[in-house]
């Protein structure tokens, strides 16, 4: 009993890897670092796009854009801008050596067929069991638009979410059950937030690391039971 308590205390102490909450770029750097070399990755529109700034050549990551390309390069600048070469956010981009183009059904087969290793998405809410809500607030009169979110959420081998832990009003976006309309059921595997990295799955919500707070302080903010993730061997 005493040994277990000590071990828990030890793992909790080691959970905190930063003495302050992470900014958007720090979070993007962290996600980039966690992507395994050689992966095929789709970065969602918005905050996830920042991750591409921190991928290194050594990682040899191939980026997919759902409008029909593998091997997408950085945003186009100046003379590089070409209206026929855009990403899913309709921003002009560049092609890298080894890039390929394909039509929309093939592009979505890449997602839906389980060929993408990781997609990184934003979210309104993630449930304790990994349900994702990120496409629609459900507000009356809101015009719904879904794009490729449901295909990415159900198709990629790993679905990482990047978001702030709290809404502007201070409510946790990690929830027992999503109140916004769902994008996918049980699909999220990791949630990167400014205050902690969470692992979601059948074992409930585990905390891998915290930023500027302890596990106990984090638990005060999040309405689902949190446990420390088992330490990963270095």
């Amino acid at each position: 009993m005493g040994a277990q308590t000590n071990s828990q205390a030890g793992s909790r102490a080691s959970l905190q890897t930063s003495n302050k909450a992470l900014g958007r770029d720090d979070l993007a750097r962290l996600v980039a670092r966690d992507i395994k070399p050689g992966s095929f990755v789709n970065l969602g529109i918005g905050q996830p796009t920042l991750v591409s700034n921190y991928l290194t050549a050594d990682q040899d990551i191939t980026l997919h854009t759902e409008n029909g390309m593998l091997g997408m390069g950085p945003e186009a600048q100046g003379d590089e801008i070409d209206g026929d070469l855009i990403n899913a956010g309709k921003i002009p981009v560049t092609e890298l050596p080894g890039a390929s183009y394909f039509h929309h059904a093939d592009s979505f087969a890449i997602m839906r067929g389980g060929h993408l290793d990781i997609c990184v998405l934003g979210a309104f809410q993630v449930s304790a069991t990994g349900d994702l809500a990120n496409w629609h607030t459900g507000a009356p009169g809101a015009i719904p638009a879904v794009g490729g979110a449901m295909d990415l959420a159900t198709g990629a081998k790993d679905v990482f979410v990047m978001m702030t832990l709290l809404t502007r009003e201070g409510a946790s976006k990690i929830v027992e059950t999503c109140t916004y309309p769902l994008t996918g059921v049980g699909c999220v595997t990791r949630v990167y937030t400014d205050k902690a990295v969470f692992l979601t799955g059948p074992d409930g919500v585990q905390v891998r690391e915290t930023f500027g707070c302890t596990l106990e302080e984090l638990q005060e903010l999040v309405p689902v039971p949190l446990t420390a993730a088992p330490a990963v061997a270095p």
Partner: peptide, 15 residues
């Protein structure tokens, strides 16, 4: 009228 279709379903239904 709007029929909203997830993008992959749109592509695959056309295919």
């Amino acid at each position: 009228e709007l029929e909203l279709v997830p993008q992959g379903n749109l592509a695959e239904r056309i295919r």
